[in-house]
């Protein structure tokens, strides 16, 4: 398909100066929902500890691609994925790789904050307890505290760890979800429009948090907000109608888009 080729060529362009180790990569990833093909063969490399943003008009397949990266598409009955997704050069769709282990390494934060109807403490402790990461209650306390600290929520909730997580404000809930993901020490964190349900102040706090996490985690962020992409990401990928149109350094994309569609989109002509 023509566009696919184009985008692969562009990939070559953008990778002229590799910035480090490749953490994840996708090769000819297609996703079908029943009969209809939602992604038409995506190729992409994601480098370790960089922040990459996915932008594009709604329905173009950003979330679908993001979910391929930790096999969350497995949970949708009608979804079928073909192609290869590699994590540290290992095919994550290979039967020998355990999806439980994969998701412990590639965590996910969702569009709508979804704390469990449990206490704040239990929300954070959920992952470590499942995976048997800690042995003692004291260790667990430490994991909870450090995760909440990294998510910048500790000071706000340290006195009410037993209060239900659902009682927090929207922004706090989303940070709780980020802390919950951090608690299992993932290598990659996927975020699907993490701020779309939040007010501007909460959004800026999350953006700050993303900045903090930069460097320790590989972050993949879907956003419909181009300013946000520009503010937080190192690289930006533009999707359109199930194709990856362009992937480049964020400042390049926003100042000097190579593709007409990208330019139209970021200048607000459609989307």
């Amino acid at each position: 398909m023509k566009t696919v080729k184009l985008s692969s060529e562009r990939l070559g362009v953008s990778n002229k100066q590799p910035s480090g180790k490749i953490k994840m990569s996708a090769r000819d990833v297609k996703v079908f929902y029943g009969e209809s093909e939602a992604l038409h063969g995506i190729d992409m490399d994601i480098y370790e500890n960089e922040v990459i943003a996915f932008i594009g008009p709604s329905g173009c397949g950003k979330s679908t691609f993001l979910r391929c990266l930790n096999r969350m598409n497995d949970t949708i009955d009608v979804a079928k994925v073909t192609g290869q997704v590699l994590l540290d050069e290992q095919d994550i769709y290979d039967p020998s790789l355990d999806v439980v282990q994969l998701r412990a390494r590639v965590g996910m934060v969702f569009q709508k904050p979804n704390p469990f109807p449990k206490s704040i403490y239990e929300n954070i402790a959920y992952g470590p307890r499942l995976h048997g990461l800690v042995e003692t209650r004291r260790e667990m306390d430490e994991v909870v505290e450090s995760s909440l600290r990294r998510a910048g929520l500790w000071e706000e909730v340290k006195d009410r760890l037993d209060a239900p997580g659902t009682g927090l404000s929207g922004g706090q809930q989303q940070r709780l979800c980020i802390a919950r993901a951090i608690a299992v020490s993932p290598e990659v964190i996927l975020m699907d429009e993490p701020c779309s349900a939040l007010d501007p102040i909460a959004t800026s706090i999350i953006e700050e948090l993303i900045d903090e996490l930069k460097g320790s985690y590989t972050l993949v962020i879907v956003t419909h907000n181009m300013q946000q992409a520009a503010r937080v990401s190192d690289k930006t990928a533009f999707f359109h109608l199930g194709n990856l149109i362009e992937l480049n350094k964020t400042d390049e994309i926003f100042t000097n888009p190579q593709d007409k569609k990208t330019e139209d989109y970021i200048t607000g002509r459609f989307g």
């Binding site: 355990d98 439980v100 282990q101 412990a104 390494r105 995976h131 048997g132 990461l133 020490s185």
Partner: peptide, 18 residues
């Protein structure tokens, strides 16, 4: 190192959980 340790522990828990 921490991540490696965690991966080990996750791997250890797998058989029982499945």
């Amino acid at each position: 190192q921490q991540r490696d340790l965690m991966q080990q522990r996750v791997a250890q828990s797998l058989a029982k959980r499945h």
